[in-house]
Design a protein around this nucleic acid. Structure first.
Lengths: 346, 346
DNA sequence: CCGAATTGGGAAAGCGTTATCCGTCTCCTG
DNA sequence: CAGGAGACGGATAACGCTTTCCCAATTCGG
C-alpha cells in the first residue's frame, strides 16, 4: 500500500513552476501577503498546489519570517489529569490563534526542566508556558530564571501557571477565596466542628487553601483546634496517612474533615472507612480541585472546582495580551464550590 | 525585571565571530559532525556559545538538514486520561530519541482531524501518530488516508494507535485475549452466571472484548443469555442507562456484570446501587481499561489493565523500527487482569 | 628527504521560504 | 494626451544553519 517510500515533498518552487509563475507570486498567493495577486494567477497557483499536494514547510517559513508559530508547554507529567486538563486549555487557545503546541514533561525534576527549557528555546516559540511545582534547590532555580530571562530578552514570552514565586507573568488559582467560600457553604450546611488535612508547610497551594478555609470559618466564629490539623504528602497515600493520624489522635466531635486537595480527601475517606467511620454518616469529607474522580467516588466528594482548562487558555491569552506591555502580570482565576454527598446538610 | 524586551537571539554567526573562527568550524563544534575540530578551537567555540547564551535555531537546522526532529501526535482530547496516558508514553519515548513532540486535539471531528494532519505535515515531522476513534463518514476517511499516504510518499512515517481499519502501521491492544483472561479469572473466583454491557456494534474495541469474554466463558461451558447483553454509548452515562436496562429486563440469578470499559462499569455500578442492588454483595461488576478512577471508586473495580503509556512508546518505536522496511506492521500489546473488591471470590 | 596521504580550517553553495526592490503596465487627472 | 500614481509580476537578497569543496599544513612511508 505504501507506494514510493521516499521522494521529497513538493516545494514552493515546484508549485511556481507547475503554475508557470514566479516564486514570489506563488508565495504571495498561498499565504496572506500584503500584496495582492490577480485572481487568475492566484487560481492557477492554488490549483497547482492542490495538484502537487503542496504543504508549506513551516520550518522554512519560520526561518524566513524570523518567527515560528509554536507555543511550548512544559508540564510535570502529562498523564496527571491536573496537567492534561491544563494542556487541553493551552492547546485549544493556541489552535484558535493558529499556533502549534509542543509539549515536554519534566517528571518534576528541575534539572530536566532546565534542559528542556534550553531545548525548547531552540524552537524559537512565541511563548514558553511552565506549569508544575518545582521541588527546587536554589541553584537550579537561578539557572532557570536566567534561561527564561534570556528567552524574554530575545523577544520571547514566558507565562507561568500557578506559581507566584518566579518573576514572570502568571496565571494563578484563587485558592484562598475558594477555600473560604467552601468554609462558608459548609457552615451553611450546618457543620460547626472541623478538622483539616494539609500538605507540606512550604507548599503555597496548601497553605493558601488552609488559611482561606480557616478565615472562612472565623467569619462564623469557628476555629479549628490545632490538634485537628494533620499534614502529609500531597498524594492519595498522604491523605490516607493523615486520615489515620487524625483517627489516632482523636477527632471526637469533629463533623467534617477538609483536605486541601481531592486525592488527599479520597485517601482520607479510605482511612476513615478502614477505621470504622462511615462517610458521610459518621464523618463528612470535603476536598479541593474537583478532579474527575471526585464525582465517581462513593459518596461523591464535595469539593471546590478549579477551572483547569481555563488556566491553560488564560495562560496563552496572557502571553499575547502582554505583547504591548511586557510586565509581569498576574491573572487570577476563580473557583466554584461543588457540594456533593460527602457533606450532606445536617 | 524584564530588561531589554527585544534583541534577536545570538546566531551561529555571532558565536563564530566571538570565537574568532569560521561559521563552518562553529557549526562543526557545536553539533556532532562527521568532521573533527581541534580541541582548542572547539573549546573557544563552546565558550563563546556559553557567553552569548547561544541556542541553535531548530527551524534553521531543520531547513538546512532537510529533516526536523519532531514527532506529531494527534489525539481526540488530551484531557481524557486515556489519551493523556498515551501521550505520556509518546513523549517519553520521543525524548529518549531527542525528538520534540507537537500535539493537537481533534475533538473527535474527522474534518478537524484532516485539517490538523495537513497542518502538522507542514512541520515535516519524522512521524505522525494518530490515536482516537473516528466516527467517520467515508469521504473524510478517504481524504485522510490520501493525506497520510502523501506524507508517507514524501518520506514520512505514520503510526496508528488502536485502529486496525486504516492501511498503516498500528499498535493495538489485545482486547480479545484480555477479556478472555478476565473471564477465566472470574470463573476461578467462583462466578458462573454473567451479564454484559457493550458499546455500539460497529465499535471494534467493544466487539473484541465482548467476544473474548464470551469465548473465555465458553471454555468453562458457560454462555451469556442474549437477553443479558445490553448495548449503549461508550460513556459513563451509557453505562448507567445499560445498567438500568438490565435491571428492568431482569437479571435475576446473574452474579456479575462485565462492562466493556471502566467508565461504563462505573456508570452501571451507580445504576445498580440506585436500583437497590448492593455492589458487590448483590451483584459484582467488572470493567476494562484500568483507568485511574477504577482504583478509587467504592468498591474498587475489577478490570483489565491496558498499558496505555506503553501504547504510546511502542508507537514511537514502531515508527523507527519500520525505517528499513516500511511495511504496515501491527504491534499488539498485552493486558493484565486486575482483581479488586467489586468481584470478591465467592 | 621527497612525494603522497591525511588532517582540519574556511569559503561558499545550498535548504525552502519571505520580503525588498525594480520594472512594466494600466488608469486617472488636468 | 502628457505625466504621475497605483497595481502587480519577477528577480534576488536575506534568514540561520549544514555541508560540500578547496586548499594549506602536517604526517608518513619508502
Amino acid at each position: 500500500m505504501n507506494s514510493r517510500p521516499s521522494a521529497s515533498p513538493a516545494t514552493l518552487q515546484d508549485v511556481a513552476r507547475e503554475a508557470g509563475v514566479s516564486l514570489a507570486t506563488a508565495s504571495r498567493s498561498l499565504n496572506g501577503s500584503v500584496r495582492k495577486v490577480h485572481d487568475d494567477y492566484r487560481q492557477r497557483v492554488l490549483e497547482a498546489a492542490a495538484r502537487l499536494n503542496y504543504s508549506p514547510n513551516l520550518s522554512a517559513q519560520a526561518v524566513a519570517k524570523g518567527a515560528s508559530s509554536t507555543v511550548a508547554l512544559l508540564v510535570s507529567d502529562i498523564a496527571d489529569p491536573y496537567f492534561s486538563s491544563i494542556a487541553a486549555g493551552v492547546i485549544r487557545a493556541a489552535e484558535a490563534k493558529g499556533l502549534i503546541v509542543t509539549m515536554a514533561a519534566t517528571a518534576r525534576s528541575s534539572v530536566r526542566e532546565l534542559e528542556l527549557v534550553r531545548a525548547l528555546r531552540g524552537q524559537r516559540p512565541q511563548v514558553i508556558i511552565l506549569t508544575g511545582s518545582r521541588l527546587e534547590g536554589p541553584p537550579a532555580h537561578d539557572a532557570l530564571v536566567a534561561e527564561l530571562q534570556a528567552f524574554i530578552n530575545t523577544g520571547g514570552r514566558v507565562v507561568l501557571i500557578s506559581q507566584r514565586e518566579l518573576p514572570f507573568s502568571t496565571v494563578v488559582v484563587d485558592n484562598y477565596l475558594g477555600a473560604r467560600a467552601l468554609a462558608n457553604s459548609l457552615v451553611e450546611q450546618g457543620y460547626r466542628r472541623f478538622a483539616a488535612i494539609g500538605g507540606a508547610r512550604a507548599l503555597m497551594t496548601s497553605t493558601d487553601r488552609l488559611s482561606g478555609f480557616a478565615d472562612g470559618l472565623a467569619e462564623h466564629g469557628i476555629a479549628i483546634h490545632p490538634n485537628h490539623v494533620a499534614r502529609a504528602e500531597f498524594t492519595r497515600d498522604g491523605g490516607y496517612t493523615a486520615g489515620q493520624h487524625l483517627l489516632a489522635t482523636g477527632i471526637t466531635g469533629v463533623q467534617l474533615v477538609f483536605a486541601v486537595n481531592d486525592v488527599m480527601a479520597i485517601g482520607a475517606m479510605s482511612a476513615f472507612r478502614d477505621g470504622g467511620l462511615a462517610v458521610p454518616e459518621s464523618i463528612a469529607v470535603a476536598g479541593f480541585d474537583d478532579i474527575s474522580t471526585a464525582r465517581d467516588v462513593t459518596p461523591a466528594l464535595t469539593t471546590v472546582r478549579v477551572p483547569l482548562e481555563e488556566l491553560g487558555s488564560r495562560a496563552v491569552e496572557l502571553a499575547f495580551s502582554e505583547s504591548d506591555s511586557p510586565a509581569n502580570d498576574v491573572v487570577t482565576v476563580g473557583t466554584t464550590v461543588v457540594l456533593r454527598e460527602s457533606s450532606p446538610a445536617i
